[in-house]
Design a protein around this nucleic acid. Structure first.
Length: 259
DNA sequence: CCAGACGTTGTT
DNA sequence: GTCTGG
DNA sequence: CCAGACGTTGTT
DNA sequence: GTCTGG
């Protein structure tokens, strides 16, 4: 789920300025300075990009965190690397129970602003990448969990995060059709009003229920998608500008899942 | 009691 | 760290 | 998860 | 088709 996301530097800076203040945006600009202007950040278990997150600890302060949550109890770097390949996503249904996520679900939630995300559609014997985004908002927040992990050997501290998933809506059902699936999934997309609710502290069970109520599919009619060039491989556009540009596949036009 | 796991994704 | 399985 | 490989022979 | 590597 969420093969990758689009989160350009320009967008991140714009959000930092509107959420926080000028200083926050300037600080972020320095952190992002060596960042290339990519249209795709992979989240596929082999590439672990750093993205800008806003945490419940400091909701107005942009921070960089590594995609792939490492629980605080992980004992060494090797175990951490093994773990983060499996914590790019967190199933919304179980975040309050799973050992890897429950501490974060309770008191370390975050949001990640993206312009859209990528998923593969299976048709015939091939897979076709799609870029999925909202019709009426240039960017939006995904619900995430974060954690801070300290490497006892090197003393290094790592901030990591995971994106919370939920059932796929009607749009995702048509695109996200991998042959080995239990059912289509999608990231939890938050409305502007829900962004602050997701970051609000939990002090009792009704607060917790309020958080759980946010974990639900986003309305399909508010979303749209387009096929794009292959992301990986010889022809892959990968981490490059233009990865999210529309690209029509002739064979798909006959049986476009979105038609 | 100790050892080992701790996680997600995936159709027609 | 904490739970489960043996 | 997707992309790519998928094999053997021969000396120093 | 199925496994491995990224």
């Amino acid at each position: 789920m969420c093969y990758g996301v689009k989160a350009r530097t320009e967008m991140s800076l714009r959000i930092a300025k509107s959420r926080g203040n000028k200083e926050a945006a300037e600080k972020l600009a320095k952190l992002l300075d060596p960042f290339p202007e990519f249209d795709l950040h992979y989240g596929n278990g082999f590439t672990h990009p750093k993205l800008v997150v806003y945490t419940d600890a400091e909701p107005r302060e942009p921070q960089l965190a590594l995609w792939g949550l490492i629980p605080a109890w992980v004992k060494d770097d090797a175990q951490g690397k093994q773990m983060w390949n499996q914590t790019l996503n967190a199933r919304g249904e179980s975040i309050f129970e799973k050992p890897a996520f429950r501490n974060s679900a309770q008191k370390k939630r975050c949001i990640v602003f993206v312009e859209g995300f990528y998923e593969h559609h299976h048709f015939g014997k091939k897979t076709y990448p799609y870029f999925i985004h909202l019709k009426d908002r240039p960017q939006f927040a995904l619900a995430g969990l974060w954690e801070e992990w300290k490497d006892k050997e090197s003393g290094e501290r790592k901030h990591t995060f995971s994106i919370v998933t939920t059932d796929g809506n009607e749009l995702m059902k048509r695109i996200h059709n991998n042959p080995k699936a239990d059912g289509p999934r999608m990231p939890v997309i938050l409305t502007e009003a829900d962004e602050e609710k997701w970051l609000a502290p939990i002090q009792n069970t009704s607060d917790e229920d309020a958080i759980k109520a946010l974990i639900k599919p986003y309305p399909a009619d508010a979303m749209t998608a387009r096929s794009v060039r292959p992301l990986l491989g010889k022809e892959g556009t990968g981490n490059a500008d233009g990865a999210s540009e529309i690209y029509e596949y002739p064979e798909l036009l006959l049986a476009d899942p979105l038609a």
